[in-house]
């Protein structure tokens, strides 16, 4: 699997015909099974970049390709996990997880088996018949992860998936995600505005500038895992990243 983003720019035209440059000349090539975090101040276009990769939006110029094939619409090789409110409240947990397979016409017994497998993987065995509103925020995101994994994509696109969770649940989910990543060998593109989260998770962190988002720097993180959040080494990386983010945020104020 190869994912490459080639010179992608995005310009929005608002209702009153103003143009807003959201992204400018982004190029990045992602290795197989790599964990990439896209980090940037709010409004830098990081979500837009992810949506372009997902095929939910089109680039104004440039292109995204997976295994050499240009992405023009959502591809079965990728699955996206949204920040929140993404589960279908009228479906049980199991029915949510089975949806992708249902859309492909996979028969019921196979769907159930798959749902069971992935719910087990995210630690939600026994919750099959529950409805989303009966679950906590962290559990709901686990379901969303299981649902994305169920279509067996090679790339996971995650748009601040833990942004709405409290700090403790968030830390827990980060551990879990690494565990799942190591087990399933996915390539992950993970958008966040949390320096701490990026340093904990990523192989490489792509730092974007203030709008229009350009790549400011790509920071490679030493590959030891699990990482000690408070160690000196990561403290230095974190300081470096925070300085960059601050520099960018200060530009707007």
């Amino acid at each position: 699997m190869t994912l490459s983003i080639n010179d992608v720019s995005k310009t929005f035209v608002s209702d009153d015909a103003e143009t807003i440059d959201a992204l400018s000349h982004i190029s990045l090539s992602v290795n197989n099974e790599e964990f990439i975090c896209i980090l940037g101040p709010s409004g830098c276009g990081k979500t837009t970049l992810l949506r372009i990769v997902a095929g939910l939006e089109s680039a104004s110029s440039g292109s995204v390709s997976v295994d050499g094939i240009p992405v023009t619409r959502p591809s079965p090789k990728m699955a996206m996990i949204f920040q929140e409110y993404s589960l279908y409240p009228w479906r049980t947990v199991e029915e949510n997880v089975m949806l992708g397979l249902e859309l492909r016409g996979v028969n019921k017994p196979d769907r159930v088996t798959a749902a069971e497998k992935f719910l087990d993987l995210v630690g939600l065995k026994g919750f099959e018949r529950r409805y989303p509103h009966e679950l906590s925020g962290g559990m709901r995101q686990r379901v969303a992860v299981a649902r994305a994994l169920a279509i067996e994509p090679s790339i996971l696109l995650m748009d601040e998936p833990f942004g709405a969770l409290d700090a403790q649940t968030r830390n827990r989910m980060q551990y879990e995600l690494l565990r799942i990543w190591e087990k399933t060998k996915k390539t992950i593109l993970f958008v966040t505005h949390s320096v701490d989260e990026a340093v904990f998770l990523a192989d490489r962190i792509v730092v974007l500038t203030q709008r229009p988002g350009r790549i400011k720097e790509i920071v490679t993180i030493p590959s030891v895992r699990p990482r000690e959040r408070t160690s000196d080494e990561f403290g230095q990386i974190r300081r470096h990243l925070l300085d960059m983010i601050k520099e960018e945020s200060d530009l707007v104020q």
């Binding site: 619409r73 699955a79 996206m80 409110y85 949806l99 992708g100 859309l103």
Partner: peptide, 29 residues
């Protein structure tokens, strides 16, 4: 019907017709 619901369907491979039958209609029901 929440846009996220529709986009989830699309990214999971739903056709226009499936978006209607699996997401829009149950969501609006």
């Amino acid at each position: 019907v929440k846009n996220t619901w529709i986009e989830v369907g699309t990214t999971l491979g739903a056709s226009e017709r499936q978006v209607l039958t699996k997401v829009v209609i149950p969501g609006a029901a």
